[in-house]
């Protein structure tokens, strides 16, 4: 009890003073408020702007490229999630089995997730190349196509290709997270169900699925938040092209804010992400609370 009381009365200021953690918060918060301020001005890079109220935000509502950007971002972040989750679940179920060389296999399947995305995207950049694509070569040699596929040059193919690369990168994350969930299922539960005569499918449906539901939901929300705000994969594969058909918020912000130097407008584009990210972050928080 005495120790407990001391635990409570101990002031942490000795080694972790408020100023320091305030400092960290400020380093995040200051750019955020600066971003809000910039978005309310017509600033250009190197020229401080005038306060123009919400005009940037209003102008974006009638910008067709911005519409396309918003649509792409939803496809890129949301439509890919079920694919990542299903493929990840399959991967986790396989990794959960007893097998030889399980450590190297786990390390190998993690590669798409841990290797620098900018560099692995270069691999995809060549795989999707109009001249050097091995996929085109394969299909051509099988007689399926007569001309190389222009993966990144056609609007529909381009968004599909970047989504494909995005799914490829996300599957290991889902796989390893779901695997962690699977391993926390008590083995007795499976055994008890088996003794009671539950079939493999029933055990999967009523023991495995309920116990990993939470993990899958958390992984999905995290994945949505990260992919929603992605940049590098699209920047390297298409730079938002062809004809702005694959822009997402990150790349469009970069193009307007830095390349076209309209930093005020760029800040407005990125701030449109904020309420959407906030919704997903709140959902995640609510769910994490419930899990605890």
């Amino acid at each position: 009890m005495a120790a407990n009381a001391r635990l409570k009365s101990f002031s942490m200021r000795d080694f972790f003073d408020r100023e320091r953690n305030l400092g960290i918060m400020l380093f995040m918060a200051y750019p955020f408020f600066l971003g809000i301020w910039l978005s309310l001005t017509d600033s250009m890079i190197g020229r401080a702007g005038q306060f123009i109220g919400l005009r940037n935000f209003v102008d974006l509502l009638t910008d067709t490229i911005f519409h396309q950007t918003a649509k792409n971002t939803f496809i890129y972040a949301l439509v890919t999630v079920p694919f990542k989750a299903m493929l990840g679940l399959g991967l986790a179920l396989i990794l959960n089995r007893h097998m030889r060389f399980s450590s190297p296999v786990r390390a190998a399947v993690m590669m798409p997730w841990i290797v620098p995305t900018a560099l692995s995207s270069l691999g995809w950049f060549m795989i999707f190349d109009p001249v050097f694509s091995p996929i085109s070569w394969l299909f051509r040699n099988m007689g399926l196509i007569s001309k190389n596929i222009n993966f990144l040059g056609d609007p529909i193919l381009a968004i599909s290709s970047v989504c494909w690369a995005n799914i490829w990168r996300g599957v290991p994350f889902f796989g390893i997270t779901i695997l962690a969930g699977l391993q926390s299922v008590p083995q007795e539960l499976h055994e008890a169900a088996a003794i009671d005569g539950a079939s493999v499918w029933h055990r999967f449906r009523h023991v495995t699925i309920p116990s990993i539901k939470g993990v899958v939901l958390i992984a999905s929300l995290l994945s949505i938040i990260w992919t929603f705000a992605d940049f590098q994969l699209i920047y390297i594969l298409t730079k938002g092209g062809p004809a702005n058909e694959t822009h997402i918020f990150g790349t469009y912000t970069y193009q307007i804010g830095l390349q076209a130097t309209e930093i005020g407008m760029g800040a407005a584009i990125s701030l449109y992400m904020f309420p959407i990210l906030a919704v997903f972050a709140i959902l995640l928080l609510i769910y994490l609370r419930k899990e605890q």
């Binding site: 995040m28 750019p31 955020f32 600066l34 971003g35 910039l38 938040i225 990260w226 929603f228 705000a229 992605d230 940049f231 918020f249 990150g250 912000t253 970069y254 804010g257 830095l258 930093i263 760029g266 800040a267 990125s270 701030l271 992400m273 904020f274 990210l277 972050a281 995640l284």
Partner: peptide, 11 residues
């Protein structure tokens, strides 16, 4: 959860 793409312009 704050992604770099949200803050890179002001930063």
């Amino acid at each position: 959860l704050v992604p770099p793409t949200l803050l890179f312009l002001p930063l």
